[in-house]
Amino acid sequence: MREINTSQITAAIRDLCIKANTHLGEDVLAAFHKAIELEVSPTGKDILEKLVENARIAQEKGIPICQDTGFAVVFVELGQEVHLVGGDLKEAINEGVRQGYQEGYLRKSVCHPFTRKNTGDNTPAVIHIDVVPGDRIRLIVAPKGGGSENMSRVTMLTPAVGIQGVKDFVVQRIKESGANPCPPTIVGVGIGGTFETAALLAKRALLRPLGSQNPNAELASLEAELYEKINALGIGPQGLGGRITSLAVHVAMMESHIASLPVAVNVQCHAARHKEMVI
C-alpha cells in the first residue's frame, strides 16, 4: 500500500481549479486555429480570432477565460493500492475547491435550487470516484458552465429508432440550442447503459483531447457524420451564422438494456476547461 495524505489532494484540487479556469488547453487553441481556416462567415472568423485573443489575455493576466467559472466537476481515479490518510477524501476535495475559488478570484456559482441562496464558496463539488488498479491517484477538474449545461439532455429512445434515431436526437438538440451554449461547442454524446450512465458517458467524452481519434471505428464514423450534420446547420460561432457550430463531436457507448436505448447529449461551450494531475 502507498500512503497519500488527503492534504496533498486539497492542494492539487486548489491548483487545478485555478489553472483550469485561466489556461485553455493547447488542443482547444489548435481547434480554434483550424476553425478560423474553415469558417467562411467574416463575423464568425472575427469571433474565433477574438476567442484566441481572450485565451491569451486570461493566461497572461491570470484571470478566468469566462466569468462562469462553473460547477467544479471532479473526476477521481483512485488506485486500489492507495491508502488515504489525513481525513475524508470528499471533504479534502471540497476544501480544495473552496481554496481554489477564493484564492483564484473565481466566481462562486453554486446555490440552493429553490431559494437561489449562494453557498458562497462554490462547494459542494460534483465528485465522480472510480477505483482503478495501481498505487496512484489521478485527479481531473472540469469546471462546467451553466449556459452549455442547460442545453444538455438525456432521453430514453425506443430501440426501434436505432442509430438514425440517435443521430436525429443529437442534431436536433444542437439545432434547438442555437446561440445559447456559446458555440462553437464540443458535443459529448453518451449512448447506452442506464439513464445516469448515458449522462456520465457524455460528460466523460468531453474530457477526450480535441483532435484525437475515437479508437472504436464505428463510433469514429458516427462522430464524423454528426460533425458534418451539425456544422451544416448554419448556427456558426456565437450563433451569428457560419460553418463552425461545433469544434468536435465525441461519442462514448456501452451496452444497453434489451428494452432501452438511452442517449445523452452534454453540450460543452468553447471554454472547454479541464486540467489533471497524478499523485
Partner: peptide, 25 residues
C-alpha cells in the same frame, strides 16, 4: 461574445455596486 470574459473585461474601466450586494455575482 459569450465565453470571452477576459477580453470583454478589458473594456470595463470601473464597476460600482448599486443594489443587492447579498446576491454576490
Amino acid at each position: 461574445i459569450g465565453g470571452a470574459g477576459a477580453l470583454m473585461a478589458q473594456a470595463i474601466k470601473k464597476a460600482e455596486l448599486v443594489a443587492y450586494e447579498d446576491l454576490g455575482p
